[in-house]
């Protein structure tokens, strides 16, 4: 409550509002779940089946035998079985108990049915994956037999090829359902108070460039050439003794 009062008292003349959540903060919260990973946690006799995290409420939604998986530009691997839970998609090799992959629905950016033989020889479910380092998505692996973790974490496309193409629409619908079951985790402090007021910089002689909203015809490319507006504002506030809640902005500023 004291924090809120402090912020209110800070309100004077201001014309900039800054987001409390910058890239790095969010990325670190989600780092554990991004991308494709190996999955070998099987239970049961023979080839077995995946162990679900039932303590965390994970439930099986659908099993689809006879599915090949193609990660990035690697050749498809088969035969395998697709297990879809309410949290993630798992592909388990039917022949090798130590071979399998899993990806959380939280990491699946986009999914679609692809039936055009010109772009891919077999009808498939095409997915885009939010990877840890998407910039390296052109990365080409050399070892198609066993991609290592660092390769897996960079993969941004995954295709699932069911032996029976009639299953594609069913799989598509299950994917839609499951994405809906996995909304973005709530950001802890979602109050409007977590947005930060900026000072009205027009009084600041050292910062003549801040007149961004005064003259909308001003070419903004010049203003922002190599000047990071948001960080400068955060700095100004952190140095301001009147602002008692500097810690949060310190975090945001470490990006």
């Amino acid at each position: 409550m004291r924090e809120r009062e402090a912020r209110r008292s800070y309100v004077r003349t201001r014309n900039i509002i800054i987001s409390p959540v910058l890239d790095g903060k969010k990325a670190s919260q989600r780092a554990m779940i991004l991308g494709i990973r190996h999955f070998t946690d099987r239970i049961g006799e023979g080839i077995g089946q995946p162990r679900f995290d039932s303590a965390e409420g994970e439930e099986l939604m659908h099993v689809q035998p006879g599915v090949a998986i193609a990660l990035g530009r690697l050749l498809p691997e088969s035969p395998g079985t697709l297990y879809i839970s309410n949290r993630r998609v798992m592909w388990l090799s039917d022949t090798d108990r130590d071979k399998g992959y899993a990806v959380d629905f939280l990491s699946i950016s986009l999914h679609a049915v692809s039936r055009d033989p010109e772009t891919y020889p077999s009808p498939c479910i095409y997915t885009q994956i939010e990877a840890e380092d998407a910039k390296d998505d052109q990365f080409e692996g050399s070892d198609a037999e066993c991609p290592d973790e660092s390769y897996l974490s960079k993969i941004t496309e995954m295709r699932l090829v069911p032996h029976d193409p009639n299953q594609l629409d069913t799989l598509f619908d299950i994917f839609c359902q499951c994405v809906e079951l996995n909304p973005e985790p709530l950001e802890g402090d979602d109050e409007e108070n977590s947005w930060i007021f900026g000072e009205d910089f027009t009084d600041d002689g050292d910062q003549p460039e801040w007149h961004i909203s005064e003259d909308l015809a001003n070419p903004i490319g010049q203003v922002n050439g190599n000047h990071d507006l948001a960080h400068s504002v955060l700095h100004l506030q952190i140095n301001d003794q009147r602002f008692e809640d500097a810690e949060e902005m310190e975090d945001a500023n470490h990006n």
Binding site: N15, I16, I17, I18, S19, L22, K26, G198, S213, L229
Partner: peptide, 14 residues
Amino acid sequence: GDGVILVSPPLRST
């Protein structure tokens, strides 16, 4: 909104 870093309303005289 999650891509927004900063919003600046038009400058107004107070």
